[in-house]
Computed example of a mutant assay.
Amino acid sequence: MSKILLTGATGYVGGTTLDQLIKSTEPSLKSLTIDTLVRTDDQAQKLRDAYGARVNPIKWVGLEDTAFIVDTAANYDIIVNTGSGFIPAGALAFVDGLARRAKAGGPAPWLLHIAGCTNLADRPLTQEAYPLREWDDERDAGAIFDFMKEADALEPYAQRTTEVGVLEAAAASGVQAVSLNTPLIFGEGTGLFNRAGLVIPISMRYIVQHGYGFKLLDTANFDYVHVVDLADLYVLLVRAILERPNRGVGFIPTGREGVLFPAVARVLMTEIAQRCLDAVFSAGVLPRDGTPQEKEIRQASLQEIADELMFGLVDVAERGWAGHKAMKGTVARKLLNWKPTRLEEAWRQEFEDEFVALRDGRRGITLDACIGIRTT
């Protein structure tokens, strides 16, 4: 019986992935126990109450405790790392622990890592722009890794440093590692804790507060994927490891070629702002006194958006809200028969759903707090 560890069980992607793994009826999964890393006793109890003996919560203090991570990771055959991709030392500690297990003999251990498309983005407001560049994870296998490694040597970016470091260290130490380089993730999660994405809730809140949308660059783009479809891809990867001969080694791309894009479709950032505006105006929250009476998307400055939305992180804001980061996901569909089902209809519905979630206070802030009045 394989031992599986999942990080990020209290997060958006990790909670949904854990839920999908446990609820799967596939023979290779339905009797598995999954260990999870949590920070509090309350989180552990909530997981036990929901999933019973199918989960085994383990307390930790987080990705900074590298000694604990190494010792813990050495006990597992598969680690699904859906926690933060911005802490290189913590992610590399998982590789070091799995490397220890690899040296002890037995099946090759696997790390399923999460990263993000801003690793590929240009910085078109402060550096050279690449508006027409599109990466394909099949056609450009290997070249994607080489680009990220070269770019990171010139300008380190924590999430990219982590992704490159994990894939490189794993390849050198007998660990099999694949990275899901994710686009914008949307939709209601199915986990027990955080069920919300990032980009659309932030955009919705900004528009409700200000009365208008914002843009940094007309051509800025994102691809997108529903969180449940993304979780389904993690499930397919785990199944391939458990079910295939040689535990997926030589079948699932790893190392320099181990970057997969779980991307479904592409939108402009201005379209996201427009759809948020449509939802808020349709609900009658806008216009109000002191705001534009028509739907409006205003030019914003990079520093303004960094300060208001991204904790002052200018490089993250530029890559995310202004950058070009087009990705085409081919490998997962061909290799694993990944079939995303939450497509254009789910994408359109997302904006209405996110407005309702904001109104109901399910996004960390209530509607009345956004607009500075009480609605009840």
Results as ranks from 00 to 15, higher is better:
327 M>D: 00
82 T>V: 14
86 F>M: 11
348 R>Q: 07
334 K>E: 03
364 G>D: 07
237 L>G: 00
258 G>T: 08
276 C>I: 12
258 G>I: 05
102 A>N: 15
298 R>G: 04
57 P>T: 04
76 Y>M: 13
56 N>G: 10
162 T>R: 00
71 D>M: 12
70 V>W: 06
285 V>D: 13
259 V>W: 00
114 I>G: 03
375 T>M: 12
72 T>V: 07
299 Q>D: 13
64 E>C: 00
311 F>N: 14
354 E>N: 11
192 L>G: 01
261 F>L: 06
87 I>A: 10
210 H>Y: 09
320 G>N: 14
297 I>S: 03
273 A>T: 01
69 I>L: 12
288 R>P: 01
255 G>R: 05
62 G>C: 05
235 V>W: 07
316 V>L: 15
33 T>A: 12
171 A>G: 10
123 R>H: 10
109 P>E: 14
25 T>C: 13
271 E>F: 07
262 P>A: 06
281 F>L: 14
362 R>G: 04
234 Y>L: 05
293 Q>G: 03
265 A>V: 05
314 V>G: 03
37 L>R: 08
364 G>K: 08
333 R>N: 01
320 G>L: 15
322 A>K: 03
87 I>K: 09
313 L>C: 10
375 T>K: 11
64 E>V: 07
281 F>A: 09
274 Q>S: 12
227 V>F: 09
172 A>R: 12
40 T>D: 11
299 Q>H: 12
296 E>P: 02
62 G>K: 01
335 L>P: 02
12 Y>V: 00
114 I>Q: 10
5 L>S: 07
197 G>H: 03
163 E>D: 15
363 R>V: 07
104 A>K: 15
117 C>L: 11
307 D>M: 09
58 I>T: 11
77 D>F: 08
136 D>C: 09
73 A>F: 08
33 T>Y: 09
295 K>P: 01
363 R>T: 12
54 R>Q: 15
334 K>S: 02
147 F>E: 11
25 T>N: 15
191 G>V: 03
362 R>V: 00
342 R>I: 04
47 L>W: 14
174 G>C: 11
164 V>A: 05
203 S>T: 14
116 G>L: 00
189 G>S: 03
147 F>K: 14
178 V>L: 05
48 R>G: 04
289 D>W: 13
304 E>H: 12
264 V>N: 04
347 W>A: 03
224 Y>C: 02
76 Y>C: 13
17 T>I: 02
176 Q>K: 09
48 R>S: 14
158 A>S: 12
154 L>V: 10
122 D>G: 03
12 Y>R: 02
85 G>V: 01
358 L>K: 03
65 D>A: 06
344 E>I: 02
275 R>L: 15
72 T>S: 10
95 V>T: 04
154 L>E: 13
82 T>R: 00
129 A>Y: 07
91 A>G: 02
169 A>M: 08
292 P>L: 04
266 R>F: 02
165 G>R: 06
325 K>Q: 08
338 W>E: 00
113 H>K: 01
327 M>W: 05
311 F>A: 14
349 Q>S: 05
95 V>D: 06
